[in-house]
């Protein structure tokens, strides 16, 4: 379990310049904040708090407003997630096909709860409320890859593959 907040972006080489580029690219767009936040998260896999003042200045907002938006939306992460994000659908259609069992199994396999990252930093576990794969429930998503009719064994294999792939890097 990794709960300690480390603003890793501040130590990533070239990030300050990259952030400036992203701000310059998005700031004149109508309703620029969400597209900019998405672009930052696409780049870093989360949105570092250290970026808020710059974003706020560029968009004529207060830092509190930026914080308010980041924290409102479930999709935006304020902590660096693991190398993979595993989302398990908790919505009704998947519940009807046993997603509760999958949730428990994932938590057990990874020894973590939702919104936490496995000890080896491989997988962050998140709940999700519908992936639009309801005809093939239960569904899960690993990063941007979607899986349907997922059994406990399938889920274990997915977790295993994600961990193994990283070990080889």
């Amino acid at each position: 379990m990794q709960d300690t907040f480390i603003d890793q972006a501040s130590v990533q080489a070239g990030w300050t310049e990259k952030l400036d580029q992203l701000i310059a690219h998005y700031k004149s767009l109508p309703g620029a904040l969400l597209p900019l936040l998405h672009a930052i998260q696409d780049e870093l896999s989360y949105i570092p708090e250290s970026a808020y003042p710059k974003i706020a200045r560029a968009l004529s907002l207060s830092v509190a407003e930026v914080h308010g938006v980041v924290s409102f939306y479930h999709h935006f992460k304020t902590h660096k997630p693991g190398r993979h994000v595993l989302q398990i659908c908790r919505a009704e259609s998947c519940q009807a096909m046993g997603s509760e069992g999958l949730e428990a199994h994932a938590k057990q396999c990874l020894s973590i709860d939702y919104h936490q990252t496995s000890q080896d930093q491989a997988i962050t576990l998140e709940p999700v409320y519908c992936l639009g794969n309801c005809a093939l429930s239960p569904a899960v998503m690993m990063d941007e890859e979607i899986f349907g009719r997922v059994s406990k064994a399938d889920l274990e294999a997915l977790i295993h593959d994600a961990k193994k792939a990283e070990a080889q890097v």
């Binding site: 969400l34 939306y73 479930h74």
Partner: peptide
């Protein structure tokens, strides 16, 4: 296309 951010 504008991406939402996971708020029902």
């Amino acid at each position: 296309v504008r991406r939402a951010a996971g708020a029902y």
